[in-house]
Simulated assay, not measured.
Amino acid sequence: MKNIFLVVVLLLSVTPSWSQKGQTIAYIDMEYILENVPEYLDAQNTLNAKVTKWKKNLDKQARHIEVLKSDLANEKAILTKDLIEEKEEEITIKQEELRRLESLYFGPKGDMFSVRKQLVKPIQDQVYNAIQSIVKRKKYDFVFDKSSELVMLFSNKKYDISELVLSIINRTRLIDEKNAKKVAPKKEFTDKQKQVLAKKEAQIAKQLSARELKKKAIDEKKKALLDKREALLKKREEQRKVLREKKEALRKKREQARKDKNNN
């Protein structure tokens, strides 16, 4: 974009005959436009709420993993080698699940990317359509975005068409709302939209089912570990009891032996 702008400036400055042919340039401030489109602010709030929810879920799972690590470190001295390996495997499974969930939320093709595209793209299309309408009417040859990486060393406010873009978006919205009140849709969704929604719901249900099965398997494994640990502790307690009984029997035997010796 920088190179395009510099080329345009150079052409305008060194080729007067070209600029005299009616070449016109305008610019917009995309950040300003989006901040004044209610749908964009609603979309950002919706996305931010989802991101906050996802982060809380990830933080919760990360804290759970830290608890498992801490418990293992504290109990390692009384656990068998098999139990230690099983607990380490459980922690590894949890860590892998956390990484997969993080990728599912924030990966290149994750939920955040999909939701942002779903929420923001229609608004970007509104802006683009408004600009196209202005370009056709005003016969602009170039329209730059002031808020992009394009370096504008100077910008004359009279060439700023941001307010014009906003007015077209607002007017279009009012017309759409007016038409929507006049003509009620025959059906809520088209057949194609229903198919897309059904497919999306099936994918979500499949993901939830897979997560539930994985969670169930982990819970069952955890229960088995706890049962095994409880059995081990019970066995050790029984062994200690037998040892105490043997010691008590030996003490009584020695005491009886001393009494018999004294009597003789």
Rank of each mutant, 00 (worst) to 15 (best):
G22C: 01
D191P: 03
D191V: 03
E163Y: 02
I169S: 01
L72E: 03
Q124F: 08
Q20G: 09
S147D: 02
L104V: 06
D141I: 03
A77I: 07
D82W: 06
D125E: 01
L72P: 01
E188S: 10
F142R: 02
R258I: 09
S162M: 01
N45L: 08
A202N: 09
K214Y: 07
S133G: 06
R137T: 12
R236G: 09
A62D: 15
K228H: 09
Q118S: 14
Y32M: 08
E230L: 03
L164P: 03
F142W: 06
W54S: 13
S103G: 09
V165F: 00
K117L: 10
R100H: 06
N170H: 07
K50I: 11
S13A: 12
D71Q: 15
Y159D: 14
V7W: 05
V37A: 10
T46S: 15
M152H: 00
D176A: 12
K222V: 13
T46R: 10
T190C: 05
K178W: 06
K194G: 09
T80Q: 05
V151T: 09
L243R: 12
E177V: 08
A202L: 10
A224I: 05
K56F: 11
K117Q: 14
A210G: 07
K139C: 08
D145Q: 00
E201G: 07
N45R: 06
I123S: 04
P38K: 05
I168W: 02
L243N: 13
E90Q: 11
S19T: 14
K200P: 03
E90V: 04
L83D: 12
Q118A: 09
I204K: 02
E88C: 01
V115F: 06
K87I: 10
S162P: 00
A205P: 00
L34C: 09
E248G: 05
T46L: 12
L68Q: 15
D71V: 11
L243C: 06
K221H: 14
K187H: 10
T52C: 04
Y140L: 12
N48H: 04
A210I: 02
L41S: 13
I134V: 01
I91C: 01
K158S: 11
E255R: 07
K259P: 07
Q126N: 08
R258P: 05
K252Y: 06
E149Q: 11
M112W: 04
Q256F: 07
I169V: 04
L11K: 05
L68M: 15
N48Y: 03
D111W: 04
L232W: 08
L101G: 02
S13P: 02
I25M: 08
L47K: 01
R229M: 13
F154S: 03
H64F: 10
K146H: 04
T80R: 04
A249Q: 12
N45D: 12
K234A: 13
K247L: 14
I161F: 01
S70K: 10
K253R: 09
T172A: 11
Y27S: 01
A180D: 14
D191M: 03
Q118I: 03
R229F: 08
E90H: 07
L104I: 10
Q195N: 13
E248Y: 07
L34T: 06
D176K: 09
M152A: 02
D160K: 00
S162V: 00
K223L: 14
D219E: 15
K76D: 14
K246M: 10
R244Y: 06
M1Y: 03
N129R: 04
K55C: 03
F106G: 00
F154P: 01
K261R: 13
Q203V: 04
